[in-house]
Design a protein around this nucleic acid. Sequence first.
DNA 1: CTGCATTTTGACCAACTAGTCAAGTTTTTG
DNA 2: CAAAAACTTGACTAGTTGGTCAAAATGCAG
Lengths: 217, 217
Amino acid sequence: MARATKKKTSEAPEKTTRIQEINRRLILDAALDVFSTYGFRGTTIDQIADKAGMSKPNLLYYFPRKQNIYVTLLEETLEEWLAPLAEIDPEGDPIEQLRKYITVKIRMSESHPEASRLFANEVLHGAPAISEFLSKHLKPLVDDKAAVIRRWVGEGKLAPVDPYHLIFMIWATTQHYADFDVQVRAIMGNQVGRPGFREQTAQAVLSIILNGIRPRL
Amino acid sequence: MARATKKKTSEAPEKTTRIQEINRRLILDAALDVFSTYGFRGTTIDQIADKAGMSKPNLLYYFPRKQNIYVTLLEETLEEWLAPLAEIDPEGDPIEQLRKYITVKIRMSESHPEASRLFANEVLHGAPAISEFLSKHLKPLVDDKAAVIRRWVGEGKLAPVDPYHLIFMIWATTQHYADFDVQVRAIMGNQVGRPGFREQTAQAVLSIILNGIRPRL
DNA sequence: CTGCATTTTGACCAACTAGTCAAGTTTTTG
DNA sequence: CAAAAACTTGACTAGTTGGTCAAAATGCAG
């Protein structure tokens, strides 16, 4: 990670000015748009600078390398992306907890599709920039929640199911609507934009998954 | 689409020589590897030429534009990718037909992950090269099968479920294991390579989806 | 084995792009 | 309000990459 600015005396404090805060945000917002559409290699610094409304050298004043923008963006996104999983309550009602998790994920997929695509693209290409994050942060969290789900299964509160595959299935299904949006639109056409579409999607997904894991008599 | 070679007399026949056949195959195989890993923009012609064991100008003799290789590859892939959906038998047993479809898709995801990633990457970036294919070929086929599933639901052979969302869920879940392989590996570690992994995956996916759509009393 | 068509390649070019730099402008601060 | 710090940018460079070209090598039909 690069130091943002050099101060006269060499310290760590790193105070950020008002202008820095504004411009970094401007850059990151523009970059999310562009990176999520064209991927890392497909994106040029000029595109981001244009969209952020500033000159390329100025952009590079805030983020000395293209990589810096990309990595910052991914880190920001992952944090937010994982939060709902962490909030699954081991003491709550299993079906209810999973219903909430799936619902939140579908909502995120609709409200921040770019974030989903940014992440999908990175993983698709082998996750060169975040493989450490995956093993150091994601894995432990998933292991933790998988254990909870396994306990639920043991207690007969869920049908016997591999917790990891269940989690993957939830991720795959919910993110599909953001990542493969073009395909969904090609098939379902005008329906996609319509008001109740998200609810209809949530309903269908919840119905299949929850009935699929409800304890069977 | 570009004409491959010009013949002395201007005709259509387009005969392909032995060498052409060999080299085109060599190029396409190499290109699938590289494109699926780095995406269209992230791939250089030199990389493909290297992997195919020939010089860049020679490669360009067979495919005058980088685009040509990419599009050819996508078309080849899509054909194969869609076949299993077409094979769903409207007269068969619903649960059995869907079990077969899911099983085949998981097998394909494991045996040709590059093809899945190539396609995923293209759709993720807005499907610029295949949007026509999506609306002209994919949509009609899906509409057709959705109608079959809807009829099954009407006949009480499946629980009430939106057929389109069911199909999306099957695609999302099965392709997840190819497209997000790195993530799956980061979480499940050594298990992924192990012999029975595909069967375990298939078992989990089938169990949730099929129980999720089995008619309820 | 000869002459024509096909295949192969080294050398090259033009366009693009990440990143630099030095000189200016604006903002902050004492 | 002046000086210092922070910010901004036009012009530039070096490296990369898609694609060209002309000439050489190879394959093949008669």
